[in-house]
């Protein structure tokens, strides 16, 4: 039996970005087969400046031009301050 393909992506926000936007994660439905990271950022946001934001797809760092596929996890996070 053919399973119906999901068209949802998981969006994760971390640290100050999660606090500024008031949520940590949510699922979004994308139009078509792919969506650019930058378009997701525009969709969820906000007036936060785009500078110095780190983005990842499926927990691998990428950039705002990368494409997201259904079932992917995209995350937006500020510069790291560990150690």
């Amino acid at each position: 039996m053919e399973t119906e393909k999901s068209n949802k992506i998981k969006v994760v926000l971390l640290s100050s970005i999660a606090e500024d936007l008031g949520w940590n994660e949510k699922f979004l439905t994308i139009e078509g087969s792919q969506m650019q990271v930058f378009s997701v950022w525009n969709l969820i946001n906000s007036n936060l400046p785009q500078d110095n934001i780190i983005v990842s797809i499926n927990q691998e760092i990428t950039d705002m031009d990368a494409m997201i596929n259904p079932d992917d996890e995209v995350a937006f996070m500020p510069m790291f301050t560990g150690g």
Binding site: S15, I54, F80, G82, G83
Partner: peptide, 14 residues
């Protein structure tokens, strides 16, 4: 390794 943990690993301090 120390500089790596400060700049390249997803940790954030509040």
């Amino acid at each position: 390794i120390l500089e790596f943990t400060k700049y390249k690993v997803p940790f954030w301090k509040k």
